[in-house]
Structures are given as structure tokens and as C-alpha cells.
Design a binder for these strands. Structure first.
Lengths: 148, 148
DNA sequence: ATATTTTTCCGAATATTATTCAGTTATATA
DNA sequence: TATATAACTGAATAATATTCGGAAAAATAT
């Protein structure tokens, strides 16, 4: 046993996939070279950032999903961006947005269970300039990453 | 001009991509047939739901992103699930979660601009059993769909 | 209006890559 | 310890992406 799966998941989260030009061509009833041309164009323009896998997260040991609203201490200008960049580096973090409203940052997290979630929260509160954090645990997911 | 791009985007949002087995094999320093075997296994088990593209949404005319917290009227049991399923069907909707906290549902939206956003909000408030909705507009995105 | 440049499209040939298959090794179960 | 099941792998094959050259269309300049 080589324990391929966890390594595969980590790579698949960010990329290591590629378009199915022939399938697209069939679906769209266009020549595959035309599809190819248009895809490469989008890639060059930066319109396409990556090709990746979407998982059934329960089945890969990431069954605990939560949204976290954060208020950041504002003693230095530009601090929020720093915190966001640090948060984005964690591979438990699916998304990081600066948002309007009572909180400044909205983070989406995927971890194994509540223990791992608690650990993560503790870590970021202790290490980043976070004043207040409100958790919204996902109880049921109907759609994620545009996949239903 | 065949206007390939919009059709391509719609298909790429949900699928029409495939793993790069050779690249994964090189990266992981394992035989490509072993990688192939493991991927197919994950697909059969349902651990992998799809392979899809991630966009620079500004560049594809979906520059307006917002999170929407929703409270649903609870006169009938199971109503929340119905509303979530309806919401999930819209292709402006990236994710739908039932969450803990003051609101029941959290929806992530991607549209062209505030006009389109307002239209969407109006539509769902008029057509689904939504009592209250709070918008959190994304001002800056540091990470999305695990892609930074 | 028309010439010129740039972009988009697409068929045929080639290069890459995924997939199948058959056999081997490892792991789990009896 | 025997037997069954799952995981792994190299060699052959099938499928697919990519390149290239040129044609058509669109945009821009004259």
C-alpha cells in the first residue's frame, strides 16, 4: 500500500486536471481544433486559472465544513490584507473574502471534525490579529464550487 | 465568430475536464498505471464528484460576488430544503449551505454587476419563502475553490 | 468603399496521453 | 498457514491533445 489517495487529493485540489477537448467538441458540435484554440486563448488571457477536482468531502475525510466571520484589529493600515493572505495559505481554507457588513473577512473551511476545527480556530486567533470570530457550521450542502 | 467562450464557461463550471495522469505520476514519482488505478477507484466510490475549471471571474464577466444570508419562513416542515434545492438550480449560485447561527441558509453568488445582483435578489425574495436576507458583498477575493 | 492587418476557424498529420490487459505483489480474511 | 481480495505495474493499444498551414471572418486603416 502506497497511500496514494491523500497525495492525490492535495494535488487535485489546486490543479493537475485538463480540459476534455474532444468531449466538449462533441457536446458543442464544433471542430475540436476550434475548441482547442478558444481554450488556449482563455488560458493565455488568464481567464482560466486552473483545472481541478471537486470532491465529496465527507468521503475524503473533510466532512466538517464551516464559514467563519472575522473582525480584524485595525491598528495598522493594510493589516486586513496580511491576515487574509496568511489565511489563504492554509490548505484547510477553501476561500477567503473581504466582505461588507459587520465583519470584515469571510473564510470557508474544510476539516475532518470539530476537534480539528477548534484547533484551527485557536491557531488563527492566537497568531493573527483577530478581535472577534463567529462560526457558521454547515449542516447540509446543496451545492459547492458550482457542483450540485 | 462563433461565440464559443460563453458556452465553454458554462460547461467548464461543472465538468468537462479530466485528470492529468502522466503529470501526476511524474510529480508523485509513481507509475502512471498506479495513479490511474487509484483515481478510477475514487471515481467509482464517488469520492471525486467532478473535474472542472476555475476562472478569474472578473475576466469572464462575473465580477460581482456576494454572500447572502437567508432566513426562511417555517410554516411547513422541510421548506428550507425545498428553497435550497431551488436556489442550487440557478447557475448564478456557486454554493448553498444550511448553516448554524441567526440565519438558516448561506448562498454564494456570482453575477455580472450590482444590477444583475439586485434582479436576482428580487427574484428569489418574490418567488421563494424568504423572510429576511442580508448581503455581504465580496470586495476582494484572496482564495476561491481552494485556488489562490 | 476598399485595402490591410489581425483574429478566428478548421482539416490533416503528429505527438502525447489515457486505457486495457495480464501478471505480480501485498494485504486481509478464513 | 491457506485462500481470497485488493493494490500495484510494465507492455501494448486506443484515444486524445497538439501542431501546422492555410482559409475565412472581423476589425482597422486608408
Amino acid at each position: 500500500m502506497k497511500n496514494i489517495t491523500p497525495r492525490l487529493i492535495e494535488l487535485f485540489k489546486h490543479g493537475f486536471c485538463t480540459p476534455q477537448i474532444t468531449q466538449l467538441a462533441k457536446k458543442m458540435k464544433e471542430p475540436s481544433t476550434t475548441i482547442h484554440y478558444n481554450i488556449k486563448k482563455m488560458e493565455k488571457e488568464g481567464a482560466i486559472k486552473a483545472y481541478k477536482a471537486v470532491f465529496d468531502y465527507k468521503k475524503i475525510g473533510l466532512g466538517y465544513c464551516a464559514y467563519l466571520l472575522i473582525r480584524v484589529s485595525q491598528d495598522k493600515y493594510g493589516k486586513i490584507d496580511d491576515v487574509c493572505e496568511k489565511l489563504a495559505k492554509h490548505n484547510e481554507v477553501e476561500s477567503v473574502d473581504i466582505v461588507t457588513g459587520d465583519f470584515e473577512v469571510l473564510v470557508k473551511l474544510r476539516v475532518k471534525d470539530s476537534d480539528e476545527y477548534y484547533q484551527f480556530i485557536q491557531y488563527i486567533i492566537n497568531n493573527y490579529s483577530i478581535i472577534k470570530a463567529v462560526s457558521m457550521t454547515s449542516l447540509k450542502q446543496f451545492k459547492s464550487e458550482f457542483v450540485g
